[in-house]
């Protein structure tokens, strides 16, 4: 990969389908080693952003690169792992065959890492994929992602369908990869509590637009509640004041909800997540 390049960079990424704009000029830059939560209401474009990063859907305009290479290119593919929302696997394969396929179709393959993940849910290797439960299927799909030891993991709702104990163990393994190999994780969810103490970056999508993106601490210190006409209003400070961010700072929940309910499209891309491109720094 290109050293020093961002894990993911989107510049004015736009995707349309039958005259509907599903991703609308999304710009963001995710540094390597980040654990980034992608949140937003249903239909906000979370899955689409991830599959665009995986190279499965191409932009109608703008561009998206991963690890410094165009998304989906031959150079990018070996280093990117993608878990799709539907866990599309060959149903008639056994789990062992699925892993064997992963080994044959990747440059590197770490069977131990894949097996470690499967072990969390006691997924039998000789079971057919079609016979697995939803959670087990998720683990099988995640095993193929982790087996290729990607530098960038794009995980669409990785925790859905997993029971709470397995959920924590799975997150633990994925985060251990971040600690071990400097991997970058981008995971979507619509359950904010999933992200608690897990992510260090956040992207809030709404109606195909990036409403909020930045390092978590950056986002939280940049906002505070003030009293205005007797009601509490969230305001953004262009110069974050860490010392003042105690009592009147928002929680993650409050921040997200405030942006989603803001009258008029409030948008903010924290400096740390702005692409380098000249027209990338869009601040509404």
């Amino acid at each position: 990969m290109i050293p020093g390049s961002a894990a993911l960079e989107a510049v004015e990424l736009t995707l349309r389908h039958r005259r509907r704009t599903l991703l609308d000029a999304c710009s963001l830059r995710l540094p390597r080693g980040a654990v980034c939560g992608v949140v937003g209401p249903n239909g906000a474009g979370k899955s689409l952003l991830l599959s665009a990063a995986a190279g499965l859907v191409g932009p109608d305009s703008g561009r998206i690169t991963v690890l410094g290479r165009p998304a989906g290119s031959a150079q990018a593919l070996p280093a990117v792992g993608y878990l799709d929302q539907r866990r599309s696997l060959y149903r008639r394969m056994t789990v062992a065959e699925l892993l064997a396929t992963g080994r044959r179709t990747n440059v590197r393959w770490h069977q131990d890492r894949a097996l470690e993940l499967l072990g969390l849910g006691r997924v039998p290797l000789d079971a057919r994929i079609g016979a697995l439960s939803g959670g087990q299927r998720t683990l099988a799909a995640l095993a193929t992602v982790r087996g290729k030891a990607p530098q960038l993991m794009l995980l669409d709702e990785p925790l859905a369908e997993l029971d709470p104990l397995v959920r924590r163990a799975v997150l633990g393994l994925l985060l251990a990869d971040v600690a071990d190999h400097g991997a970058t994780v981008m995971l979507s969810t619509h359950i904010l509590t999933d992200l608690d103490e897990v992510v260090d970056h956040l992207v809030l999508l709404d109606a195909g637009q990036v409403r909020l993106a930045g390092q978590l601490s950056e986002l939280l210190t940049a906002h505070r509640f003030v009293d205005r006409d007797g009601s509490s209003v969230l305001v953004r400070r262009e110069r974050p004041d860490a010392a003042a961010a105690d009592a009147d700072g928002p929680t993650l929940d409050e921040l997200v909800v405030s942006y989603l309910h803001a009258p008029g499209p409030g948008r903010w891309l924290a400096p740390g997540m702005r692409p380098d491109a000249p027209h990338g720094a869009l601040i509404a």
Partner: peptide
């Protein structure tokens, strides 16, 4: 991190 599932930075 593996045992507690918190962010490595934490």
């Amino acid at each position: 991190v593996a045992a507690t599932a918190v962010n490595p930075n934490t």
